[in-house]
């Protein structure tokens, strides 16, 4: 699949923003001393900023954005619709939560809003993953680890985004252990995905696509002289060396470097911001690969023997 930067930036930025909102709400509920009132508001603002930047970026993917408002109208069947509805529901909850923080209204209202905010943030990330995972036409996306990966990477990158804010505002200890635990979880999910889809598979073959009997089938001509919408959208080719290099870059930038810096105990907002930026860059590469390596069944009609 053609890697579209608007969608890549959208899922990475919104993922981090939503992860940050979920982690903020959970920390306030379970370990409020880590996130005092003065720290919570800037964290909420950063979370909403990242989420909104991502959602705005996603509209650049639309060829006819004036109808984007209609995207919430098929909640019953479409994961894209569900994502839009849940993201829309998150904003009033986040603003109400912000009001409770700003006005110092603690207690039950803040707790309820917090639980709701964390749940919605996770559900939006899960819906984003399911947009891809529900497509049976693209075997590399049609896997249960895909939505789990979106949630795990969102929570992980959101926590890294929170660390410099906590360090700058509260001056107290930053939840490094939490970040490392989420790093381990995200690495496990993504690692498992890379292992499962390490070598090309043959989920669908040319014989499935053209069931003309037991005979050998060979493409003679695709019937068009130049590129088409189909070749633009579905025929992105990635050299094996490039894929290997990018997987290595994902591993180093998103996981190894943050792990090393956090374990040697870097502190201070600039150093922690560098850790977060490194992870973001790694995740942009990860999302780019997610598209570039995915193969659609329409390739079978253009002569590819198998997709998977």
């Amino acid at each position: 699949m053609r890697p579209a930067w608007s969608v890549i930036f959208f899922t990475v930025s919104s993922g981090a923003g939503l992860g940050l909102l979920a982690i903020l709400a959970l920390l306030r509920l379970l370990a409020a001393r880590v996130v005092p009132d003065g720290t919570a508001l800037p964290m909420l603002a950063l979370g909403l900023l990242l989420t909104t930047a991502g959602l705005c970026s996603s509209t650049f993917h639309l060829a006819n954005p004036k109808n984007a408002w209609r995207s919430a109208s098929r909640f019953k069947t479409s994961w894209l619709s569900r994502e839009a509805v849940f993201a829309g529901a998150l904003y009033p909850v986040a603003l109400l939560y912000g009001w409770t923080l700003w006005s110092g209204t603690g207690g039950a209202l803040q707790a309820i809003c917090g639980v709701l905010l964390a749940a919605l943030a996770v559900v939006v990330m899960y819906s984003t993953g399911m947009i891809y995972a529900c497509l049976k036409t693209i075997p590399r996306w049609n896997h249960g680890l895909v939505p789990v990966g979106y949630v795990a990477l969102g929570l992980y990158s959101g926590t890294l985004a929170a660390l410099p804010v906590i360090a700058a505002k509260s001056g107290g200890p930053v939840p490094v252990a939490l970040a490392l635990a989420l790093l381990a979880a995200a690495l496990a999910v993504k690692g498992a995905y890379f292992v499962i889809f390490g070598a090309p598979k043959a989920v669908h073959t040319m014989a499935d696509a053209l069931p003309l009997g037991k005979k050998e089938i060979r493409l003679l001509d695709t019937g068009h002289t130049h590129r088409t919408f189909l070749t633009d959208e579905f025929f992105f080719r990635l050299a094996r060396r490039q894929a290997r290099f990018l997987r290595f870059a994902v591993l180093v930038l998103a996981f190894v470097l943050p792990l090393a810096l956090l374990t040697v105990g870097v502190s201070g907002p600039p150093a922690l911001a560098f850790v977060a930026l490194s992870a973001f860059t790694g995740l942009l590469a990860e999302r780019w690969l997610f598209f570039a390596e995915a193969e659609h069944t329409v390739r079978l009609y253009h002569g590819q023997r198998a997709v998977g």
């Binding site: 639309l62 060829a63 109808n67 919408f229 959208e233 659609h296 329409v298």
Partner: peptide
């Protein structure tokens, strides 16, 4: 009603849908 997200084209296994790039 179409917003031109191309999601339907991704879901179609046969490559039967193409985007009108003038109208989006």
């Amino acid at each position: 009603k179409c917003m031109g997200c191309s999601y339907c084209a991704w879901a179609c296994p046969y490559g039967a849908r193409e985007l009108d790039q003038d109208e989006g």
